[in-house]
Structures are given as structure tokens and as C-alpha cells.
């Protein structure tokens, strides 16, 4: 019954977007993520591909689509760096899956829930990356918890601002 209820609610609240949005918005996120740090310097406490992954995962309420979106954005993000390809891919794959899974069960239209969800998922993403680097791959990876905390806060703030803007792009039936 709960599953039926969940499926029913998912079908009702699922968001649909033009096909180009699925290409343009992630690409823009990747480009801005690669370009903005050159301007902001040391204040690049945000991860736009992460925010886009969470948004589409919550909006589409599909774990598979969230997983694929996170995997693609993460892999491309890794590909633009000099690090091993797949670290961010794995992290955002998990994030996309969890966001979509959570979005099926709770009301994500609430701004506070969005903030908290982005904050927690960002911390989880950072934890997965650190885990992969230091445990799975056994690489020397220096990190600071303050940086990860600021990154989580930045992602939450950006999500709070960006989600309403992206909602305008959805298809109204």
C-alpha cells in the first residue's frame, strides 16, 4: 500500500523538462564549475554538478535517472581534473540515487528540507570522495573538514537559490 502510495505520489509530482534542459543545464554546471573558481579564487565553496544532480534527482524522483545523472556529471567533473576518474562519479552516483530515493518519500518542496538535504548529501559526497581516495585507492589525500563544511554550506545556499529558478524550466502540463 505504501509502495502504491509512493508510486502514486511520484506520478503526481514528477517534474518534466524539455530534453535540451537535461543537456544544457548539466553542461552549464560543468562549465561554470570549471570557470568560476578562476574568478573566485579560494572562495570556490560550491559544487554545481552536485547541486544539479540533487535537483534533477529530486525533481524526477527516479533513482535510476538520479544515479545516471550523478555518474555522468561526476565522471565529467573528474575528467576535467587531474585526479582519478570515477571518484566524483561514484560519490555523485550515490548522491543521485539517495536524493531520488528520498524525494520519493518526503516533501522536498520545503526550502528548509532542501537546505538540510543538500547539506547532508554534500557532506556525504565529501565523505565518499575521501573514503575512495584514502581507503579504496590508498592515495595521499589531504583534506580539511572546514573546507568540506563550507562546501556543504555553499551547496545548500546555492540550491536554495537555484532550485526555484530551475523550477521555471519544467514543462507545465
Amino acid at each position: 500500500m505504501s509502495l502504491l502510495g509512493a508510486d502514486f505520489r511520484r506520478d503526481l509530482e514528477i517534474r518534466r523538462y524539455p530534453i535540451l534542459i537535461y543537456v544544457f543545464v548539466p553542461l552549464t554546471a560543468l562549465v561554470l564549475q570549471a570557470w568560476l573558481p578562476r574568478i573566485l579564487g579560494n572562495f570556490d565553496w560550491f559544487d554545481l554538478p552536485f547541486v544539479i544532480t540533487v535537483y534533477f534527482a529530486l525533481g524526477r524522483r527516479s533513482p535510476i535517472q538520479g544515479t545516471l545523472m550523478g555518474a555522468v556529471l561526476g565522471i565529467f567533473e573528474d575528467a576535467l581534473s587531474h585526479h582519478a576518474i570515477g571518484v566524483n562519479g561514484i560519490a555523485k552516483t550515490v548522491v543521485g540515487f539517495l536524493a531520488a530515493s528520498v524525494g520519493v518519500r518526503i516533501d522536498v518542496e520545503n526550502h528548509i528540507i532542501r537546505l538540510v538535504l543538500n547539506f547532508l548529501l554534500s557532506l556525504l559526497s565529501s565523505a565518499i570522495c575521501i573514503f575512495i581516495y584514502r581507503v579504496l585507492l590508498g592515495l595521499d589525500f589531504a583534506w580539511q573538514w572546514q573546507t568540506e563544511l563550507f562546501l556543504a554550506i555553499g551547496n545548500s545556499v546555492i540550491a536554495a537559490v537555484l532550485f526555484p529558478l530551475l523550477n521555471r524550466l519544467q514543462v507545465r502540463e
Binding site: P63, I64, T67, L68, A71, I75, A84, I85, G86, V87, G89, I90, T93, V94, F97, S101, I132, L136, L137, G138, L139, D140
Partner: peptide, 29 residues
């Protein structure tokens, strides 16, 4: 299917990671 897809994608990426990291003579990856 959701879990399966997740696991497949994760597994593929882990394998991809494994191909990129090598263990050196000093025992470090």
C-alpha cells in the same frame, strides 16, 4: 532495478578507478 543499476554503475566506476591507480615499488598506490 534501481539498486541493480546503482551497483552496476558503481562497480564500473570502481573498476575504472582500479585501472588508473597503480602500486609502486615502494608499496604505495
Amino acid at each position: 532495478r534501481n539498486i541493480v543499476v546503482l551497483l552496476v554503475i558503481l562497480l564500473a566506476q570502481i573498476i575504472g578507478l582500479a585501472t588508473q591507480v597503480r602500486r609502486t615499488d615502494s608499496g604505495h598506490n
